[in-house]
């Protein structure tokens, strides 16, 4: 009987598993026309490659990385990268602008992944060509939830910023920098009818990093960014100067619409760099 049940269960699961593994339906039916109406997008890992763990160990903190395959030249460079998590209630993770001054259009960050989903990154080079790289991520399930473990702690530190240059400074060369921002990045996905908790989201929506007042990274981001947003990106320290992060947060009425939002606070933090 037990065997039989197990067998029936496996059979029942088969189509589900097959469907989940390479499910592009949300992309094909919704996201592609929402973000790239009328555009042609090549699918390859030749311009960028997306790297993400096969299993989201903690759905609230899934490290993903976009690795660029072409240098940021004056004539040809990656101008913009969109990141989407197909099956999230709000799939848009962010759009990230890069510049020749970025040195390298690599970007690592931590995102929330609600369920089994494709994560995709679409790059636009300065000639207008679009290229997409994607990766399937298995959700972890269990007792985890894509919210964050200790929101009060993140709230207490809100607005605190740290820069780290862990690879050292390479004068005149693309150098990796890490930007850490303390912010709970509240998703606003709450069951307010029961517990009367506020359902407003509260997250960082705009971010700009510059070196000596020249932008190296500009981003429009959303609730899929994990609590305590963390980004690793490149800049070129060709002379002593200042890395500067400027960002602002926002609060929206609905978790899945950005129609009614209140602007929040603006923050700014500098970091002296001397190669």
């Amino acid at each position: 009987m037990k065997m039989l049940r197990k067998f029936a269960f496996l059979i029942a699961l088969l189509p589900l598993a097959a469907l989940a593994e390479d499910d592009d339906s949300t992309w094909n039916n919704v996201l592609k026309s929402q973000f790239f109406a009328g555009k042609t997008i090549a699918e390859s890992n030749e311009v960028i490659e997306l790297d993400a763990p096969y299993r989201a160990e903690d759905p609230a903190i899934v490290p993903v990385k976009v690795i660029s395959k072409i240098p940021q030249g004056k004539d040809k460079y990656i101008k913009k990268i969109w990141v989407l998590v197909d099956k999230n209630p709000f799939p848009f993770v962010g759009e990230f602008e890069f510049f020749p001054e970025s040195g390298k259009a690599d970007l690592a960050m931590r995102v929330r992944v609600n369920t089994y989903s494709n994560i995709r990154a679409i790059a636009e080079t300065n000639d207008g060509q679009l290229t997409m790289s994607k990766k399937f991520v298995k959700a972890s399930g269990g007792c985890s939830a894509p919210v964050g473990a200790d929101l009060d702690e993140a709230m207490k530190r809100l607005g605190k910023v740290k820069f780290r240059l862990d690879e050292g400074l390479k004068s005149g060369q693309p150098t990796e920098a890490q930007l850490m921002i303390s912010h709970p990045n509240l998703t606003g996905m709450q069951m307010d009818q029961m517990t009367r908790y506020v359902r407003k989201s509260h997250f960082i929506d705009q971010l700009k990093v510059s070196f000596n007042n020249k932008p190296v990274l500009k981003a429009k981001i959303d609730i899929a960014i994990s609590a305590d947003p963390n980004f690793r990106f490149y800049f070129v320290p060709d002379q002593p100067g200042e890395l500067k992060a400027e960002f602002s947060d926002i609060s929206c009425e609905s978790p899945t619409s950005r129609k009614v939002c209140d602007k929040g606070a603006s923050y700014s933090q500098q970091y002296a760099v001397s190669p």
């Binding site: 939830a145 919210v147 929101l151 996905m189 709450q190 307010d192 029961m194 517990t195 908790y197």
Partner: peptide
């Protein structure tokens, strides 16, 4: 109660 509110829908 807050944890139930924020995690409940996902669970």
């Amino acid at each position: 109660a807050r944890a139930m509110a924020t995690r409940g829908p996902h669970y």
